[in-house]
Computed example of a mutant assay.
Amino acid sequence: MTFQLIDLPYDDTALEPAVSAKTLSFHYGKHHQAYIDKTNSAIEGTDHADASLEAVVSAARGSNQGLFNNAAQSWNHAFYWHSMAGEETAPSDELKAKIESAFGSVDALKDKLKERGAGHFASGWVWLAEKNGELTIEETHDGDTIADQDGVNPLLVVDLWEHAYYLDHQNKRPAYLDAVVGSKLNWAFASENLARGEAWTYPK
């Protein structure tokens, strides 16, 4: 089985001005495609050839850093595309209640996501996740992921690598976070992930 680059769940202009069509053409069309291609090349003819992407990530963690980086980045990026929407969606009642319990309000959660994202050193990701029945904000560095962590259900993620925002916002990561977290998060996707109760899986 070879993995395919997922279709974007919106038109390439849908996220503007937070994320431009030009950024998507490079980030999605070049960076994400390269991670997929390198993952496929690395697993061809191996025991991982017919495994799910999540299984590849888990098996490669700590044993094959090159494969782990490319497989995890393939997963993270697909999850990131779905974590955004052209028009901000509303959280389900279940998600809204958990947000209010953990952070006070949706706006307070947004502020915390922006704060953690802006304060994250160098490249990585900032996540909203469910852990032990409670919502939490997690950070991973470089190509790391929480996709294969037991007991952790990722709900949303925001990419903090410079190639996610440099064409649109230059070095101003906070401006990118204001734009994406402020009005482009896909709370419907997060609600689906919460209701399912286990980590999203990469489409086959």
Rank of each mutant, 00 (worst) to 15 (best):
L109Q: 15
A18K: 01
A51L: 08
K98N: 04
W75T: 02
D11R: 15
N69S: 09
E130F: 08
D37S: 07
R196F: 11
F3S: 09
P203C: 04
A122I: 02
T2K: 13
H77P: 03
D47V: 14
E198D: 13
W75S: 12
N171W: 13
A102V: 07
L15Q: 06
I137A: 06
L156N: 01
R116I: 13
H27L: 10
T145H: 02
V19W: 01
S101H: 06
K38C: 05
S58F: 06
F68V: 00
K98D: 10
A199I: 06
S52A: 13
L194R: 03
G197L: 02
D178I: 02
D150Q: 12
Y166L: 07
N69H: 13
G197P: 01
D107A: 15
K38M: 04
E87A: 05
D144T: 04
D93M: 12
D12Q: 12
N193K: 12
G45W: 03
Q33H: 15
P17L: 05
A164V: 01
D168L: 05
P154I: 10
A108C: 15
E134Y: 12
G45L: 05
G62P: 03
G151S: 01
P9C: 03
S20P: 02
S105K: 11
N69W: 02
M84W: 00
R173C: 06
A42S: 15
L160C: 14
D107E: 15
D178H: 01
H31W: 08
Q65Y: 02
K204I: 01
S92W: 04
N70V: 11
A21S: 15
S83M: 03
H31T: 14
G197S: 07
D178R: 05
L177W: 03
A122F: 10
H141R: 12
R196W: 04
D47C: 00
L167D: 11
A18M: 07
D150Y: 04
E198C: 04
